[in-house]
């Protein structure tokens, strides 16, 4: 059933990582991404890789499950690596007509590949261990300071949570409308590209009409329940930091120091 598709790819287990405050996980992910650009040595990659591996093990999310999510990105990964192999100049290792492979090329390709791999695994670790709802709350609370610079944080978070509720409904509706138009002889599988695009008009028009109708009714229902933006709004589940969240922040700082430090040491050794 389409309605069972969960957005993102939350993998429910009862690990410490799952129980962390979403703000902590958001910060950690951001920090991890930034740290990727702070080192340029093998040792740095090794340290980052080990840290990532440790977090994955603690999270109880099977590594194979994470790799499944990578499927669509393999192409990008390989593409980037090939690009780097062939287009970097340096000590030539192999040459055939205009194609040449250099030592530096191989190295950059390996680093780029690894860096991309870490980035993707690192950020999917967040979506795997945090429900979309927690993520929304985390963003709303964690980014509240941005209201000072007139970023409508609350509105964005509200939009996200409404989208989370209605995307499965609209997906199911799309399925139903497609079937209904098929029952009227519409054909979505045959014909040239233009024909296929045109065949989608009978699906998208009713879908948009329905989405607008839903939006209208929902807006009215929200107003009837006294919604008026975040004026004096309270929350049933306000985020509260626990001891483990403090520890997590400390670990993050240690990680950052470690990364910068290893890179310095690596520079001294090599």
């Amino acid at each position: 059933m389409l309605r069972d598709i969960t957005l993102g790819q939350y993998y429910p287990t009862d690990s410490v990582i799952h129980r962390l405050d979403p703000r902590v996980k958001l910060t950690a992910t951001l920090l991890f991404i930034v740290s990727m650009f702070l080192f340029h040595s093998f040792l740095g990659y090794a340290v980052a890789g080990i840290c990532l591996a440790v977090v994955i093990v603690i999270s109880h999310v099977p590594f194979r499950f994470m790799m499944k999510g990578l499927k669509t990105i393999w192409f990008l990964l390989i593409f980037t690596m090939i690009f780097n192999i062939f287009l970097t100049d340096g000590t030539i290792l192999f040459q055939w007509k205009f194609i040449k492979i250099s030592q530096e090329g191989l190295l950059t390709a390996a680093f780029m590949g690894l860096r991309l791999f870490f980035l993707i695994i690192g950020s999917s670790l967040m979506t795997l261990t945090t429900t979309p709802n927690q993520l929304t709350t985390g963003m709303e609370t964690g980014l509240r300071w941005m209201k000072v610079i007139h970023v409508p944080v609350h509105e964005i978070a509200m939009m996200m949570s409404i989208a989370l509720r209605f995307i499965p409904i609209l997906m199911e509706e799309t399925d139903k409308i497609m079937k209904a138009q098929q029952a009227r002889g519409a054909d979505f599988e045959e014909g040239k590209l233009m024909d296929r695009v045109r065949a989608l008009v009978p699906v998208f028009v009713p879908l948009f009409v329905s989405a607008f109708r839903r939006a209208n009714e929902l807006a009215m229902a929200m107003e009837a329940r006294c919604y008026r933006g975040d004026n004096g709004r309270t929350s049933m589940k306000p985020l509260k930091y626990a001891a483990r969240d403090g520890i997590a922040y400390v670990i993050m700082v240690l990680f950052l120091v470690l990364i910068v430090f290893t890179d310095k040491i690596a520079a001294l050794i090599f």
Partner: peptide, 28 residues
């Protein structure tokens, strides 16, 4: 309202029930 889908806001039941009191500023 009439349409049961178009008046529920949150994707978890208890959070939806909390929507009204949250708007009214009721303490947690």
């Amino acid at each position: 309202f009439q349409n049961p889908d178009n008046q529920l806001v949150a994707s978890v039941v208890e959070e939806d029930v909390a929507f009204g009191p949250e708007n009214l500023g009721v303490p947690t």
